[in-house]
Design a protein around this nucleic acid. Sequence first.
DNA 1: TGTTGTTGTAACAAAGAACGTTACAACTAT
DNA 2: ATAGTTGTAACGTTCTTTGTTACAACAACA
Lengths: 140, 140
Amino acid sequence: MQFSSRFTIATHIMLCIAMFENECKITSNFLSNSINVNPVVVRNILGTLSRAGVVEIKQGIGGAFLKKPAEEITLLEIFKAVEKEEPLFHFHENPNPDCPVGRTIHSVLDGRIEAVQSAMENEMKNVTLFQLLEDTKKKM
Amino acid sequence: MQFSSRFTIATHIMLCIAMFENECKITSNFLSNSINVNPVVVRNILGTLSRAGVVEIKQGIGGAFLKKPAEEITLLEIFKAVEKEEPLFHFHENPNPDCPVGRTIHSVLDGRIEAVQSAMENEMKNVTLFQLLEDTKKKM
DNA sequence: TGTTGTTGTAACAAAGAACGTTACAACTAT
DNA sequence: ATAGTTGTAACGTTCTTTGTTACAACAACA
């Protein structure tokens, strides 16, 4: 199991916008060239980022811009924009209620699973686009 | 994206063994009845748990047993037994080395991604089968 | 007003993963 | 030998991911 590459692509998109929005027009072609992926893939992901309220896209004329300061955009926001809102773990659906374990497995495990998911999300919440931008500038 | 139900099924299996191994013979049929899933699915997962060294299976005669005390078996061990060893996030493969962002995106993001994965794994490492067993007994 | 460069989206295809199922060889106590 | 198991191969179905073509809708601008 792996998260789809939508997340790393979306992060790449956000970084490019943050880095270049004042230098040139960021079109889906520009982005697809940096990411090396089909422009339609970029446009779709860009669309979800726009609906999530982190970027603004100029229709017709073209161009993408951050809708918030990079300091206020976290990895978690990007992640949630491109991943379906669903529990991280797929639970088997119909454990047998006649078995003591089957009857209780959900209530025993649900909290633990949520804790795992929270741990993951908290880690992502602590990383901002601004930090990634600084890291990128340092490595350029 | 979701982790496959193999993980919750495997945990269900481990809990059943821990709970009943001294009371009755734990066969794939017994387990499939509690979990409500095909016996072959159980046998496959039981096989990976056995290869991971957490259970022992009696061939021919049948029956599954814990190979370590429940206190020493963590959710992480169960998780790793049933999930492929691969990075949690699928990175887009060929970012453009001629773009400053494309050139550095890997080195900027890899560490952050590992931190997310570690956060998840640490959370799982802190839960033992023994704790789940106690929780189950309380709720019975 | 027509042209040009965009975005948004539908439609399709290929590949892989998840899950369920049948079938059967191999094994072991009795 | 029999009966109850496990191990595993072989399918089939469904869903997700990823890439692709095609084209309508849109907005600046000559």
